[in-house]
């Protein structure tokens, strides 16, 4: 976790790289980049909990799914315009994060994880079973044109703008006094409470921020696909986000970002070579945990350190 100031050169370089990928990526490029960006935001929101708050959530997809359903329900059931629906998604996710978070932060470690699992599965089951309102397992489709009917490339640019704004806001949060408090609660809650702060309130704040950002990602994902399915809130997406954070690198701000890029690339390109892409991800995950527990980001840092201390002749 380096200096708190935003390095605009890196931001600009990253944006340019993404824009180049969108412009040059051909037919399949833009949707792939969009998915990558949304997964990056989703994983980064979980990373706030895991790397900074010391909280491992097993139900994070609930907020991604609620973001998607917030949009889909607002448009299809309440007749709101899509723009207003896009605000409803994150709002719904944030509200439920407040409710679930209030309960979950009472527990810690594995018990916290189990309670988030229960909350996530409750959300999934309600979406899955409440046919009259959520459409059950058939989901909600046809409430809007996928990607607002925009050209896929333009939609990718819009998503890039939103995701960059969210990640910059997240960067500000983790480097503000709030972020430092979140980090210290993650390290040692008792010491934080000894210094007069309420660790649960800090954790709840982090939980709501993470849930809302996951909701933003979920809403845009629903907008990209033009649909919402219960699976978006299911265990599969939760595991995806956990895997992305670990692949990308725990204890690093960019962990979610790197993880999403690696994961989405693997998921899209490995099946072209072998059908067993999950096997490949599983083996990679094992290797990462055994040999580079801090993920891709940790590996990068190690290489960087080595280069600096051992300059080439």
């Amino acid at each position: 976790m380096s200096a708190a100031r935003i390095d605009w050169r890196i931001v600009a370089a990253g944006c340019l790289a993404v824009l180049a990928a969108i412009a040059l990526g051909g037919r399949g490029g833009a949707p792939l980049v969009t998915e990558m960006l949304l997964m990056a935001l989703f994983a980064s929101s979980l990373n706030l909990l895991m790397s900074y708050g010391g909280m491992v959530s097993f139900g994070h997809a609930a907020f991604f799914g609620l973001g998607a359903y917030g949009l889909a329900l607002a448009v299809s059931r309440f007749g709101l315009p899509v723009a207003a629906g896009l605000a409803c998604g994150p709002l719904l996710a944030g509200l439920l994060a407040l409710v679930f978070g209030t309960l979950c932060v009472r527990l810690s470690h594995i018990y916290f994880a189990m309670l988030t699992l229960a909350c996530g599965q409750i959300t999934f089951t309600v979406l899955f079973q409440w046919y009259d309102f959520t459409g059950g397992d058939t989901g909600i489709t046809g409430f809007m044109a996928p990607a607002f009917g925009l050209d896929e490339r333009w939609f990718a640019v819009v998503v890039l703008g939103v995701v960059v704004a969210c990640l910059l806001a997240l960067w500000r949060v983790v480097n503000a006094p709030l972020g430092i408090t979140i980090r210290s609660v993650g390290e040692d809650p008792e010491r934080v409470s000894a210094s007069g702060l309420n660790p649960r309130r800090v954790q709840l704040t982090a939980f709501v921020i993470a849930g809302t950002l996951a909701g933003v990602a979920g809403s845009l994902f629903a907008a990209l696909q033009g649909n919402a399915f219960p699976d978006y809130a299911g265990l599969g997406f939760t595991l995806d986000s956990l895997i992305m954070v670990v692949l990308g690198g725990l204890r690093s701000f960019g962990g979610g970002l790197y993880g999403a890029v690696i994961y989405v690339l693997l998921r899209n390109y490995v099946p072209l070579l072998v059908t067993e892409w999950e096997l490949v991800i599983g083996v990679i995950l094992l290797l990462v945990v055994l040999w580079s527990p801090e993920g891709f980001a940790g590996g990068l840092q190690r290489i960087g350190r080595r280069l600096r201390s051992e300059p080439r002749p």
């Binding site: 956990l242 895997i243 670990v246 991800i281 599983g282 083996v283 995950l285 094992l286």
Partner: peptide, 8 residues
């Protein structure tokens, strides 16, 4: 995480 890897 390694048990999740085993799942996959």
């Amino acid at each position: 995480i390694v048990t999740i890897a085993l799942v996959l």
